[in-house]
Nucleic acid binder design. Structure first.
Lengths: 352, 352
DNA sequence: AACATCATTCAAAGCGATTTCAAATTTTGT
DNA sequence: ACAAAATTTGAAATCGCTTTGAATGATGTT
């Protein structure tokens, strides 16, 4: 369909406002106003301008526009290389992108190797004014990136929560509630040794999950065994190995709480390898961030989950960023999303 | 550590070149030149400027710089939402980011929902001059995005290959060779019914893999059975289901070629569920893009793979983009990377 | 001492948009 | 028919940088 033209048609430099204005016999001012919906331009003129613009494929030069308006028209997302750019992040990113796409706002992804570099990256973004706001994710209990951003006066919305002096805008899911319910459910089914495959230590969400887990145990007077908790990244492989050694404990755990679907797959492999059957000999409830390519319903056996779409969270956070940029104060932007508990075949009564 | 200051210290607007120049008692011209390494500035002055700049944390305003230089200082990556933003892409992206990070080049990620939107996204990027180049990925045999980009005169480097009229810059891995060797190896081990879990139909790499597979078969005079090939996205779940039904064939396949590690995990689940043992009853060789969180060596049994780091490819592509922008003609930018065949426990002799 | 040369520095003109302020035109009021 | 008000358009300033062309001062040559 498309044909390259090296013909005399010329280098086809992108058309500028000036060109468009001349073409129409109008001033740049009027054309600019017409395109940006200012009221003081004749309706007929506006139509004429709009038509010409779309016919000629005119779009304002992004840099010029940004310079003139002072808005960067972009938001930033800084990712710590290998650790973070996993399936969760890409799903989240695509949620963010979904919102921004129609709004002419770019998503600037910066990858860094270390925590050190990460702070430097934010400083650069701030100084060069490349973004209007950033989204911050996977916070620690007292997140220094958040403190830095406040200091730099870069607006941001946090995916998760942190506990620093100043109010910040955030959206989080109810990890504590989710684990309290999931753990409670397993306890009600008679399980007494429930393994918790939690996220990295220091992350707020890991702590929240642990709190929920402990709350459920203590509500039913079940003693806590620290050997049943592991804190790791959410990968199939790590989970597999940890589950292997966990299954060698005596008495061994009769149920698993998996922090992610990847973790669940790893635990699942270990369970089978130990000759056990999931849903009968051992139970599992996994946290499901809802990946399009990994459906708890289609697993075998189907997987009981605590479910919350990380992609939707991304989209909503993008919305919240828009609100913050529109002037909504950070302390008014707090959203705690409930988490569904979906019971399927992988969780059953404790076998005697 | 960081402290927010709402004090009279003022709004702390980012410092401009003008401010820096005044602070130093120099003209903007000289400061600009000093910072950009032009030769005609006194060495002492240059040092003084550099020190002040870093002390005061000066960085040029990105929009102004871009407007003045005409360079966007960014490259684009357009992703088709859910389909593509999976683990492969995020790993690739982090490779690209690794190269760009130190070079003050941004990576602009745009997500779109459909093919239609994707073309529109490139048009927008072109018209608004937001990027200097883009990286194109997962091409089809005759990729219309590539044609469009040529037409729009946006430089790009293709990850993969396509067959359109004009020369394009590309980097690809030797998928044909990889599958020829893997298939050949399995045939040599006595396997005769080898299932190929290939990528989506229409993608160049899928075709290349199929060619390698068929070549190995025909080289050894083994007849081809179309029932043994499936073309799907690379996800655990889909692979699981396809493998399930594939294992119901009689005679059933004795070996599997998995298009990705996710696919391998799914097939693996199906194998176990069928009561078979991987490495003894059934063999498998998977393509390994080298995910930091999924190591073929740590699987159980360890997985034989055709290996090629997709992250490294990302980094190299970023380099190639830099070369193309520096003026290297597209037809001189072609790289075909060999693929390692790594034999581990999952591939063994065909059981009788 | 006068002139050319070289090394440094600066004032001002872009880059391509938005936006302020003023001018031109049309409409309205009497 | 004429002033006043409202509508519509434009010229020029601005955003923060790079870069051209000119100016300044120091050095070297004859």
């Amino acid at each position: 369909m498309a044909h390259r033209s090296d013909e005399p048609s010329g280098p086809k430099a992108a058309m500028r406002l000036k060109d468009l204005a001349e073409h129409l016999g109008l001033s740049q001012t009027t054309v600019s106003r017409a395109l940006n919906g200012y009221p003081e331009v004749n309706e007929a003129t506006r139509r004429r301008v709009a038509e010409a613009a779309s016919a000629l494929g005119y779009r304002p030069n992004a840099s010029a526009l940004r310079l003139a308006t002072g808005r960067a028209g972009a938001i930033g997302l800084v990712l710590r290389g290998a650790d973070e750019l996993g399936p969760h992040m890409s799903e989240f990113l695509s949620g963010v992108g979904a919102y921004m796409a129609n709004r002419e706002i770019d998503v600037l992804v910066t990858t860094v190797a270390s925590q050190q570099e990460e702070l430097a990256a934010y400083r650069r973004l701030a100084a060069s004014q490349k973004v209007d706001a950033v989204v911050l994710h996977s916070p620690t209990l007292k997140d220094e990136r958040a403190e830095l951003l406040l200091d730099l006066k870069i607006p941001f919305v946090l995916h998760g929560r942190t506990n620093i002096g100043h109010p910040v805008a955030w959206l989080d899911i109810d990890n504590t509630g989710a684990l309290e319910r999931a753990t409670g459910h397993l306890l009600d089914l008679g399980h007494r040794r429930i393994a918790l495959f939690n996220g990295l230590k220091g992350r707020t969400f890991s702590q929240h999950r642990e709190i929920g887990y402990l709350a459920a145990l203590s509500a039913r007077g079940v003693p806590f065994d620290s050997a049943l908790i592991v804190n790791t990244a959410f990968t199939d492989e790590i989970a597999f190995r940890m589950a292997q050694s966990m299954l060698e404990l005596r008495p061994r755990p009769t149920a698993f709480l998996a922090g992610s679907m990847m973790t669940a797959l790893g635990i699942f492999r270990a369970i089978r390898q130990a000759g056990l059957e999931l849903g009968r000999d051992v139970s599992m409830i996994a946290h499901d961030d809802v990946f399009p390519y990994l459906n708890a319903d289609n697993m075998y056996p189907t997987m009981s989950t605590t479910r919350s779409s990380i992609r939707q969270a991304g989209t909503r956070i993008a919305e919240l960023i828009a609100q913050v940029l529109a002037g909504k104060p950070a302390e008014d932007v707090h959203e705690l999303w409930p988490v569904e508990l979906v019971l399927r075949e992988s969780s059953g009564p404790a076998s005697p």
